[in-house]
Design a protein around this nucleic acid. Structure first.
Length: 746
DNA sequence: CCATGACGCTTTTTT
DNA sequence: AGCGTCATGG
């Protein structure tokens, strides 16, 4: 039998991963080794060989984008669209299963998936009941603890007493249970519940579990290193009958532990799934040898890896460029100049990316790119369904579907402003609580009393009548038409029309988009699920643009040219990561650096700045320890600050004896920034804190009387040394205060 | 009820 | 600095 077309061109390991359809398989796929190709070809292979029908295959991803891509590519491989398969995100598939069995966890099938805003409101409400000080215990962190529990598959009854001991006056587990109660009462779930409830159903109702175990003959999992415990348990339960599960992932690219991902899942795959095979994909098709070697050398510093040795058949290529600059501004200047050079050379801007550690870093690049008139896009920012106008509109629709949706009602009761403020809401809550009825019902009652002031009562009465009328419309008109009526008649559209802020127009645009997106759905219900689980921001791809984004969001992408700015200790690796997670935090940062480098196909350009303004405070920083960890033979060091070796930095004790606890001269948010001087790009101290006469843990290698050379001011003599700050009498330009890293001893 | 100012926080993000 | 939350006063 001839080899089918779709199998051609696979390397040996890839073919093995495709052909080994039965039994548990872990595909350890290094960066750029064709992981998606394996996953999609494997799926096509199963379908083509009639090993399973489309609806007997479960393929889970983390993002909608990945799911979409998988669908498209598999359809392409087998040459026709595939219907009825279960390809989607963990959450979307969890939701689908949960809808079918909602009653088993006391939910109705039309439950609503809450956004973070709603979740927060709920947590706050529960905390209020227990008089927990929101100052002391920010609801944000309480919610995050709850979410981490959910990530671990822990329902309130499974949380051990020891777990939340100190938190929220020891009441956090109580808050968790009551939060879950409230969710149920409101017929709502949060994201974590989509899997957690599945787990509850699976363990309490083996018959239901069996339906799915039998149904899914083959299971495929993308980005396995990002799964949390709950997802792992979910997969294991589903796979345990047929045992045909194929997980693809890369332990070196695990960068989401902070939101519950367990690298442990991938590390112990062989133990968890008996008789499993592990296949390593080690041929990299993406990067040049220097880039690959630099990345490999770096990641080799991590402990506890499964270990892979990537190689590439690609020949030639530049070394990774590493360059030190004065400050963030110069970094942006130089980087954007480099971008412009490439643009003039005819390189597509689509193939250029700037990958930063933290969102705020993009600003300086944006400023500069605007100046140079180079088009760019920033990836990140609020998702479509996180935008205020989307959520407001959706709140209206939710109430349309269920007048028991208190959270939605509370959200829009005074949006647009109709004079129903705190007091009115309070009164409503009172009535609702006393009679155990939803807020909307309470509203109906309260308008018949004189409990509210006439003004408020009228407003509320109008609102109720509006909703009744809109709901009646649902019978005769399609949902998109009703939606339009709702946002018009409620005054919501008008509110933004009258708004003079610059983004009002955009919001109106989004509302339009929201409504037009509704048309293709059967009903409001389906649309709401789509919005909360699937809907993404779409971008007009009219023009070629440079991409600015965080390292996290760059995972899975590739570009010819990748700029990696901000490689300074404290920023990258991030101080907070090291403070809070210690060595494992540092290792995750290192993986992030690895992800960054391996995004590059042809060029990777790392920069670090000696000075950076953070929260409007100037801070000086050391080059990232990751720079020291790059194999010297694979990098080109271009420092505007003198050689890294031999310069003042390399002699700095903090550099030589770096460990996690050796902070750069205070990058963290914990210490005050009072030791930092504002200096300009020539190292000139232009501002200094009055108390900053001594810097304890940063001392200069210069002494009074030394002769020094400064790039701009020329030769001079040191009059005074205080910490890393020198007072220098320059031969030509007089006395100035300069940071020591800007001068060389002569 | 809403506008105003003080206070406090500031990594990463999907669904 | 810049933004969001919260308490205060009109």
């Amino acid at each position: 039998m001839p080899v089918p077309e779709y199998l051609k061109g696979l390397n040996e390991a890839q073919s093995e991963a495709v052909n080994l359809t039965d039994g548990p398989v872990l595909v350890l796929a290094g960066a750029g080794t064709g992981k998606t190709r394996v996953l999609t070809t494997r799926m096509a292979h199963i379908l083509m060989n009639r090993k399973a029908q489309p609806w007997e295959i479960l393929a889970v991803t983390f993002t909608n984008k990945a799911a979409r891509e998988m669908k498209e590519r598999v359809s392409g491989l087998i040459g026709r669209p595939v219907e009825g398969w279960w390809v989607g995100t963990f959450h979307a598939i969890g939701a689908r299963i949960l809808r079918s069995h909602a009653e088993l966890v006391d939910l109705k099938p039309n439950f609503i998936i809450l956004d973070v805003d709603d979740q927060m409101r709920l947590v706050k409400q529960v905390m209020e009941v227990h008089r927990i000080d929101e100052k002391k215990w920010p609801p944000r962190s309480i919610l995050s603890v709850i979410q981490r529990w959910k990530d671990r598959g822990l329902t309130p009854d499974k949380v051990s007493d020891a777990e939340g001991q100190g938190l929220a006056d020891g009441l956090i587990s109580v808050i968790y249970s009551e939060y879950q109660e409230r969710l149920k009462t409101l017929n709502t779930v949060d994201f974590g519940d989509l899997l957690l409830h599945c787990l509850t159903i699976f363990s309490n109702y083996p018959d239901t579990l069996e339906i799915y175990q039998k149904k899914f003959k083959y299971i495929l999992v993308d980005e396995y290193q990002d799964t949390n415990v709950s997802q792992y348990l979910w997969l294991r339960l589903l796979a345990s009958l047929n045992n045909n599960i194929c997980c693809v992932g890369d332990d070196d690219q695990s960068i989401y532990s902070w939101r519950g991902a367990e690298v442990g899942n991938i590390l112990k795959f062989e133990k968890d799934f008996k008789g499993s095979e592990v296949i390593r994909l080690e041929q990299n098709y993406r990067s040049t040898p220097h880039i690959l070697a630099a990345a490999s050398g770096l990641i080799a510093k991590n402990q506890g890896r499964l270990g892979k040795s990537l190689w590439t058949g690609i020949e030639a290529g530049e070394k990774v460029s590493v360059r030190g600059v004065w400050d963030g501004e110069e970094e942006a200047l130089i980087t954007c100049d480099e971008i412009e050079i490439r643009k003039k050379r005819g390189q597509s801007l689509e193939e250029i990316a700037v990958l930063v550690r933290a969102g705020f870093q993009t600003r300086e690049f944006e400023d500069r790119l605007i100046n140079l008139a180079i088009p760019y896009r920033v990836i990140g920012g609020p998702r479509f369904y996180e935008r205020m106008e989307t959520r407001d509109a959706i709140a209206y629709f939710r109430i349309l579907l269920s007048d028991q949706d208190d959270l939605a009602f509370e959200r829009i009761i005074n949006v647009p402003k109709r004079g129903l403020g705190k007091a009115s809401v309070q009164a409503l809550h009172e009535v609702a609580r006393k009679q155990s009825i939803p807020l909307f019902s309470a509203a109906r009652e309260i308008v018949d009393t004189d409990e509210l002031k006439p003004r408020a009562r009228n407003a509320l009465s109008t609102l109720i009548n509006d909703f009744d009328r809109w709901r009646a419309n649902l019978d005769s008109l399609n949902h998109a038409e009703v939606a339009t009526i709702v946002i018009e008649e409620s005054g919501y559209t008008e509110m933004w029309q009258n708004d003079s802020s610059p983004d009002a127009a955009g919001r109106l645009e989004n509302l339009k988009e929201l409504i037009s997106g509704m048309e293709e759905f059967e009903n409001l219900q389906g649309f709401l699920e789509h919005v909360s689980l699937v809907m993404e921001n779409e971008e007009n791809v009219s023009e070629e643009k440079v991409t600015l984004m965080t390292l996290h969001s760059a995972k899975g992408l590739e570009f010819d040219t990748v700029f990696l700015p901000g490689w300074e200790d404290g920023l990258f690796p991030h101080q907070r990561s090291m403070d809070e997670e210690g060595v494992s935090g540092l290792e995750e940062e290192r993986r992030l650096a690895y992800v960054g480098l391996t995004r590059a196909k042809k060029e990777a350009l790392v920069t670090y700045a000696a000075n950076r303004r953070i929260y409007n405070q100037w801070q000086n920083a050391l080059p990232s320890r990751f720079i020291d960890e790059l194999p010297p033979e694979n990098i080109d060091l271009l420092s505007e600050l003198g050689e890294l070796s031999g310069g003042s930095w390399a002699n700095n004790e903090a550099v030589l004896s770096r460990d996690i606890s050796s902070k750069p001269q205070s990058f963290g948010n914990i210490q005050p920034y009072n030791r930092i001087n504002k200096i300009n790009r020539d190292g000139l101290v232009i501002e200094q804190d009055s108390e900053d006469t001594f810097v304890e843990d940063a001392s200069s290698n210069f002494e009074q009387g030394n002769r020094v050379f400064h790039q701009k001011f020329g030769y001079g003599k040191i009059l005074n040394v205080s910490g890393t700050k020198l007072e220098i009498e320059f031969d030509k330009s007089g006395v100035k205060r300069v940071m020591d890293s800007f001068v060389e001893a002569v």
